[in-house]
Design a protein around this nucleic acid. Structure first.
Length: 414
DNA sequence: TCTGGGGTCCTAGGACCC
DNA sequence: TCTGGGGTCCTAGGACCC
């Protein structure tokens, strides 16, 4: 048996931990740049707010219903996530962190315990230690734990599906669009066929599923049948691509501003690359005008790096080359970013026999840089090419403090 | 004025090779 | 008139996830 632990309205719950007067009140969290709503508390969901709606359009409705809105504070959410995951690791040894607010537990060794009781115990402990409420679904496959978890969200939080009858019952009411692995396109396809429930999908001809929904669909259906098809992956695997992109705080028209922003993103991407001990062989540079107004211009340029590297100045140089290649004047740019590709462990790097062997010096420099930024806070030390004024920086007018990660922003008890 | 950001896996089809 | 077949590698794009 497996379990899926999923934090309820995670971002909103994180904000509440440090502002307890928000319990029971509607809370929403906005995307970067305060663009749109990305997380809602149960009370906010009950108001029927449209998740995709831009903030500026629903601002008044939010005020009318006294909804508390926050800019996203990923530093806080990341730190709270770690606390939840560490709590889970204290309670059970096999934890696979699946996302910032979800983890699978492998309970195959727990044959001697009542798993429903155990789930309730986990839920209570996480709540007590971190103040984050979670739902838990327990079932024979990962896909079924997702189903159980979703059902649990509506009730008291912990659901176990282990008998054929309980699974049948759960699937017969479960809409296909809520199944893990069924998105918009597959929902359309299945509805056209008259398939509406998870039970109907589970009982379909597997060959048809394979043909129309590829092996990913086949695996999903087999999992619904109780046959585990997804592996167990406890170590976080290193990223195969690293993207750093953002909407700009305002429209940018000058090449210099695009350069500053993208150089900044490149240096952040490089930090992440070094953090996982990898080097990259290519970097893609991209930026675009708004998709909602004016002519769309969205160039992207892949720049091959002369050597596999994680040295920030190499990546900055390549970023500038990429921008030089595709920047055009006369457009108002809204967002942009970089993507690192061809990522390998640094140890496997091919050295060029003729190039100067500067690596030890460069590695030491990067190590110092990363160390300073870790110790004194992100961006304490940065490349001058990222500019000083940083007018491209995103807007986050409603951000809560970094309660848990910055000495100057600790909550004060009075 | 204002519409997120960061990932994975799979397949089809083209290029190329023998 | 008649123009193979099998294999690998790479890339773009689709679909999905949180």
């Amino acid at each position: 048996m497996f379990a899926l632990v999923d934090c309820n309205s995670f971002y909103a719950s994180c904000e509440r931990v440090f502002q307890p007067h928000l319990y029971g009140k509607p809370v929403v969290v906005l995307s970067n740049n305060d663009g749109m709503v990305v997380a809602k508390s149960k009370e906010a969901k009950a108001l029927g707010l449209d998740l995709g709606a831009p903030y500026f359009q629903i601002k008044e409705i939010l005020q009318e219903h006294s909804v508390y809105a926050f800019s996203s504070n990923y530093t806080l959410y990341g730190d709270m996530s770690q606390r939840v995951m560490n709590t889970l690791r204290e309670l059970t040894s096999d934890v696979e962190v699946y996302s910032i607010d979800e983890a699978f537990l492998d309970l195959r060794g727990f044959t001697h315990r009542d798993l429903l009781e155990y789930g309730k115990e986990i839920r209570a402990t996480v709540l007590q230690w971190t103040h984050i409420p979670v739902s838990i679904g327990i079932a024979p496959t990962k896909t079924l734990t997702k189903v159980a978890n979703k059902i649990g969200k509506k009730g008291d939080g912990v659901i176990k599906l282990d008998t054929l009858e309980s699974i049948d019952q759960a699937l017969s009411d479960f809409p296909i669009e809520d199944i893990w692995g069924i998105g918009r396109r597959r929902t359309e396809l299945l509805l056209r066929m008259g398939i509406r429930t998870a039970k109907q999908l589970r009982d379909m001809d597997i060959k048809w599923v394979r043909k129309r929904m590829t092996v990913t669909g086949e695996r999903m259906v087999r999992e619904l049948r109780g046959e585990p098809c997804y592996g167990w992956d406890e170590q976080p695997t290193s990223k195969k691509q690293i993207i750093c992109s953002r909407s700009f705080g305002k429209f940018l028209t000058e090449k210099k501003d695009i350069e500053e922003a993208l150089v900044f993103y490149a240096s952040r991407a490089a930090e992440r690359l070094r953090a996982q001990g990898s080097v990259a062989s290519d970097i893609m540079v991209f930026f675009e005008t708004s998709r909602f107004s004016g002519p769309l211009y969205a160039p992207a340029k892949v720049v091959h790096l002369p050597r596999e590297t994680n040295y920030t100045p190499d990546l900055i140089k390549a970023t500038l080359v990429g921008i030089q290649d595709c920047f055009r004047k006369g457009y108002k740019y809204r967002k942009g970013g970089v993507m690192l590709m061809g990522i390998h462990p640094a140890g496997e790097r091919q050295y060029d026999l003729l190039s100067e062997r500067n690596e030890p010096k460069q590695e030491a420099l990067m190590k110092t840089l990363d160390g300073l930024n870790k110790r004194y806070g992100a961006n304490s030390v940065f490349y001058a090419a990222t500019g000083i004024k940083q007018e491209w920086k995103m807007m986050r007018q409603l951000k809560s403090p970094h309660y848990t990660t910055s000495w100057s922003e600790l909550p004060v008890a009075v």
